[in-house]
């Protein structure tokens, strides 16, 4: 079972929920931090680093002695990562999506692929949680390939929670695609509702079952609740706007550890989402 935690809006509590659900789950599981531009699940989950692997994408390297400047590569590349005027093609690695197309269309076979680093995948064990973190290099714009590299570490025999980046664009799609269920986290504000609606449209497009979690309930109004009721979307978790949660968060502590009274709700939800337990069984 793969559970993805996503949201349209940033800062709604994706990582908080992902880390707390993971900790409240009563058996070993993987937590994949796919928010590779700003991964921070590890801040809640102390543990010894178990390894770091460099992730690369293939970028073209041109053998100028073979190139006749025909620009077939430039015409093929949708991202303008390679252009050729005359016999000296230019490569822009930061534009390259690593598709390999230029190499295939080159009539002179003048292009080969060389690896270009985009980031790292880090692993650590924190109690029962096997945490896998993707960390994109500063300056790299290629989040999706790194997110896919994180997801290649998914172990088929374990349950997994994916902490997705915010938004509704390519990195989010790369993160949530293949998930069995998506939990959309939002807050009860106009901003929370606006971005939730975008996220709902995205998830429906992907055809993945989902439900909504509302964080900081009591801080705004009831427009998110009304939207969910009208759209027939289940609100599967509500977390109160509790100052003690913010204080624990600011110290890098998990809610389920700092405030044990919240643990049953997170444990029940983790069981229900990952094991298919319904409320009656709990």
């Amino acid at each position: 079972m793969i559970l993805a935690i996503a949201s349209g809006k940033g800062g709604t509590g994706k990582t908080t929920l992902a880390a707390n659900l993971a900790r409240a789950f009563d058996r070993p599981l993987q937590l994949l931090d796919c928010d590779v531009e700003e991964p921070n699940s590890h801040l809640f989950l102390p543990g010894a680093a178990a390894g770091e692997e460099i992730v690369t994408i293939p970028i073209p390297e041109v053998d100028e002695s073979r190139c006749d400047g025909c620009n077939e590569c430039g015409r093929f590349c949708a991202y303008h990562a390679i252009v050729s005027y005359g016999a000296k093609p230019l490569v822009f690695p930061e534009m390259c999506h690593g598709c390999g197309g230029c190499m295939r269309v080159c009539p002179q076979q003048a292009i080969r692929e060389v690896p270009s680093r985009i980031g790292v995948v880090e692993s650590r064990q924190s109690g029962k949680i096997a945490l896998v973190t993707g960390r994109l290099d500063v300056g790299s714009a290629m989040a999706p390939p790194l997110i896919r590299a994180v997801k290649e570490r998914l172990q088929p025999d374990m349950h997994a929670i994916l902490d997705a980046p915010p938004g509704t664009s390519c990195p989010v799609i790369a993160a949530v695609r293949g998930a069995d269920f998506i939990l959309l986290v939002t807050e009860p504000t106009p901003f929370g509702l606006h971005d939730l609606q975008l996220a709902v449209d995205m998830v429906r497009e992907l055809g993945i079952p989902f439900a909504v979690a509302i964080n900081r309930v009591g801080s705004g109004d009831d427009r998110v609740h009304r939207f969910c009721a009208e759209a027939g979307i289940e609100i599967i978790l509500e977390v109160a706007d509790d100052r003690r949660i913010a204080e624990a968060y600011s110290r890098g502590e998990l809610i389920v550890e700092a405030l044990p009274e919240y643990r049953p709700a997170f444990a029940a939800l983790a069981g229900r989402l990952l094991l298919g337990h319904n409320d009656k069984e709990e």
């Binding site: 430039g74 991202y79 303008h80 990562a81 252009v83 822009f92 930061e94 534009m95 714009a141």
Partner: peptide, 13 residues
């Protein structure tokens, strides 16, 4: 989002 300078340069060329 990306590559505006490259593409504009191609247009000029």
């Amino acid at each position: 989002a990306q590559g505006a300078g490259i593409q504009s340069a191609e247009t000029v060329i």
